[in-house]
Simulated scan of single mutants.
Amino acid sequence: MIEEVFRAEYGRAVSVLTRLLGDIDLAEEAVQDAFATAVQRWPVDGVPPAPAGWIITTARNRAIDRLRREAKGREKQAQAGLLVHEPEVREVGDVADERLRLIFTCCHPSLAPQARVALTLKLLGGLTTGEIARAFLVPEATMAQRIVRAKGKIRAARIPYRVPRDADLPDRLNAVLAVLYLIFNEGYLDKAGLADEAIRLGRVLAQLMPDEPEVWGLLALMLLVASRRDARLRDGRIVLLQDQDRALWNADLVAEGQDLVRRCLRWNRPGPYQLQAAINAVHSDPPTDWRQVVALYDQLLAITPSPVVALHRAVAVAETEGPRRALAEVDALDLDRYHLFHAVRADLLHRLGEDPTAALEAALDRAEHPAERDLLRERLLLATADQQDRADHDH
């Protein structure tokens, strides 16, 4: 029970204490002290009726005690005095605003992208530095440094602890959404806990900003992609979408994701995450309507012109206009360093009866994830054997 409350309420408590104290480090320590107290007392006294309020009140009292102990001058004594007279924090209401402030503080554009991710997981997700480091395959000391530097920059640059003004909101919200999607993508294949954390934070953000369609679009996208997780790997090997066992898809996540896509359509304010969610929703209704997928990619390209988006559109074009037309579009893209570019080229060449081995070798050389490398290696072996058979037949 305490672990569930910790995951659900840690971010809320740190948010409130950060506003009260003006110091993220002190807020974190006070909340951690409060949870340590809960571990001792709740098994004996029982879980309080309002766990979040109990944690926040206890953390505030711990912060007061610490400030008084450390008070060497008038400033900390005055800070402790202000906390004493701070009204009790309500369970609902102001807390939502505090969490929103913390999300935007963690994802401030002046912070490095890696630091935004680390702070979001640390302060809002309640993950330990060790857990975050393991998820991103870096030493714990490296991740700790990133977090310390990010907090230091917030203090030194006096980054405001607030929701941006309306004029600044679109750019700042994009940074927040990008962080959540990065966390999700990092965890999707083999770090399910990280992907689930991104979805949880996406739900939090959607509750805090219910009138922002792109927030719901990102949540829908993550749910639809996550619905296929159990079918995505077989014996550690990647299974492509068209080969997946749809019986393994999570029907509840598919239904929720599709419902959110329909909700976004009613807003009629399309954005990149909503369009990507819509594409995944089309894939979730067999058989895939490839012409609709191409039309959605056309909209996505108009909003966010990108060679990667063009590459994915070409995959759909191969289904509607054939691999020859798709290959011409792929060859016009400048994506030599991207492994999927070469993997798509290899597939199109294979479908045209041409030799895909050079493209597969290039893809294998650039792929990093072990499961992706295994898939490419398997395809390369098959392609090499096929080319050998053809050579033997010609002789």
Rank of each mutant, 00 (worst) to 15 (best):
V5E: 14
F6V: 02
A8T: 06
Y10S: 03
R12G: 07
A13N: 05
L20G: 00
G22M: 01
A27F: 05
E28V: 03
A36P: 00
Q40D: 14
R41L: 12
P48M: 09
G53I: 01
I56V: 12
T57G: 03
R60C: 06
R62T: 01
I64H: 06
I64F: 03
I64N: 05
E70W: 07
G73Y: 06
R74I: 12
K76H: 06
V84H: 06
A96T: 01
R99Y: 02
F104L: 05
H108I: 06
S110L: 13
A112W: 11
A112L: 14
K122G: 05
A133F: 06
V138S: 12
V138R: 14
P139I: 11
A141Y: 12
M143V: 00
Q145D: 11
V148Q: 13
G152R: 09
Y161D: 08
D166Y: 10
D168S: 13
P170H: 12
A175Q: 13
V176I: 02
V176Q: 11
L180G: 08
Y181P: 10
N185Q: 13
D190S: 06
A195F: 01
A195N: 00
I199L: 07
V204P: 02
V204W: 12
M209L: 15
E212G: 00
W216L: 08
G217W: 05
L219R: 10
A226N: 14
D230F: 03
Q242N: 14
Q242T: 09
L248C: 00
A255M: 01
Q258D: 07
L260Y: 10
R266N: 05
R269D: 08
D285E: 15
P286K: 11
D289R: 14
V293C: 04
Q299N: 04
L300C: 04
S306C: 13
P307T: 01
P307W: 12
A310F: 00
R313E: 04
P323D: 14
A328C: 02
A328I: 08
E329Q: 15
E329G: 06
E329M: 15
V330F: 11
D336L: 11
D336S: 12
R337D: 14
F341C: 00
R345Q: 15
R345Y: 07
A346K: 08
L348D: 07
H350K: 13
H350F: 11
L352G: 06
E361K: 15
D374L: 13
L376W: 10
R377S: 13
R379V: 04
Q388L: 11
Q388E: 15
D389P: 00
H393G: 07
